[in-house]
């Protein structure tokens, strides 16, 4: 089993509304996989189908080798943070976490220790006795993440894990995701593309229920086939030289509103990006152009905008 999740020709409709249309996607094991797309693209539906909460209209989803509606057989090997979910308001969060642990087959003692461990991991070690009705939105989100960490999950599905969190908590969650990714497959959906680019190794972009791109983050951002150079000057001469060197079709310049420009050079993946970068920078320096930034590939945001608009 090389893939943690295999989605084949998946279709999901809600009445006449098509939420997902013929989606096929593989999520490799031990990947931190980002699921991207605008509102209504089908991300949460895909999550629901992977977690077995939703029934596919057509197609199939295999998770860790099992059809997704049989995930309960794995007793917690798959865990998830659903979007907009609540805990029973009258119960202390620790007893809720212990309940989940007991369902996974842990003894009372193990479940108590496990609840403490995950609460500590999300920075809420002192909130175990609190009832969920008394916790803030951000704290509840972290409790939701804590329950997804219970046991030793092989696949963790996190729908918008950093939404509504303060920067420090969001940082903590991103660190947890990276740490989880060392031993498990993690699927994350988020609108925060910077976060996704920072923590994910792989990703897919959905739009209107269809897959528009998938692969490693490097592939999505053309990291091995593009460089972007932010320069101060808007002088045409060095740009012309770059065009002559790499070919006009491979050099694109966007002038910034204030001053300066972004030069994008695309090239074949078999060419070494370091050679291309060195050559381009030499030309610019020879023409005394001040270089502000150099990026390998485009930002995920740029890729996202290209693929979803």
């Amino acid at each position: 089993m090389s893939n943690a999740v295999e989605i084949k020709s998946l279709r999901k409709t809600y009445g006449k509304v098509v939420a997902l249309d013929n989606l096929s996607l593989d999520i490799p094991q031990k990947a931190v996989f980002g699921l991207l797309g605008p509102n209504g693209a089908g991300k949460s539906t895909t999550f629901g189908l992977m977690a077995g909460w939703l029934k596919p209209t057509k197609g199939e989803v295999q998770v860790l080798g099992l059809p997704s509606h049989q995930l309960a057989k794995l007793r917690g090997a798959v865990s998830a943070l659903p979007q907009d979910s609540d805990f029973p308001p009258a119960l202390a969060v620790e007893s809720q976490l212990r309940f989940f642990s007991r369902l996974m087959g842990m003894s009372p003692k193990e479940s108590r220790l496990e609840a403490s461990r995950v609460l500590e991991q999300v920075g809420l070690a002192n909130s175990g006795k609190a009832k969920s009705a008394h916790l803030s939105h951000g704290m509840l989100k972290r409790i939701g993440i804590a329950q997804a960490l219970l046991g030793n999950p092989q696949l963790v599905l996190l729908d918008e894990p950093t939404a509504g969190l303060d920067p420090a908590s969001a940082r903590q969650v991103k660190d947890i995701i990276v740490q989880l990714g060392q031993n498990a497959t993690v699927v994350v959906s988020s609108h925060n593309l910077v976060d996704i680019q920072e923590v994910c190794t792989h990703g897919a972009i959905l739009d209107h229920g269809k897959l528009t791109a998938s692969g490693t983050i490097d592939e999505l951002t053309d990291t091995g086939a593009q460089i972007q150079i932010l320069v101060e000057s808007q002088n045409e001469l060095p740009l012309r030289v770059l065009g002559e060197t790499f070919g006009d079709a491979h050099v694109d310049t966007k002038h910034q509103a204030g001053h300066g420009a972004i030069i994008t050079i695309t090239f074949d993946r078999h060419q070494k990006s370091s050679d291309i970068t060195a050559q381009a920078l030499r030309i610019l320096l020879e023409h005394k152009v001040a270089i502000i930034e150099v990026h390998r590939g485009k930002s995920l945001e740029t890729a996202y905008m290209e693929l979803t608009t």
Binding site: A51, G52, W53, A72, R75, A80, D86, P88, L103, M104
Partner: peptide, 16 residues
Amino acid sequence: ESRSICYVALRISRST
């Protein structure tokens, strides 16, 4: 409605 069932449904079957 509160979707708290989602937490449980990954660990036990709906019949259970």
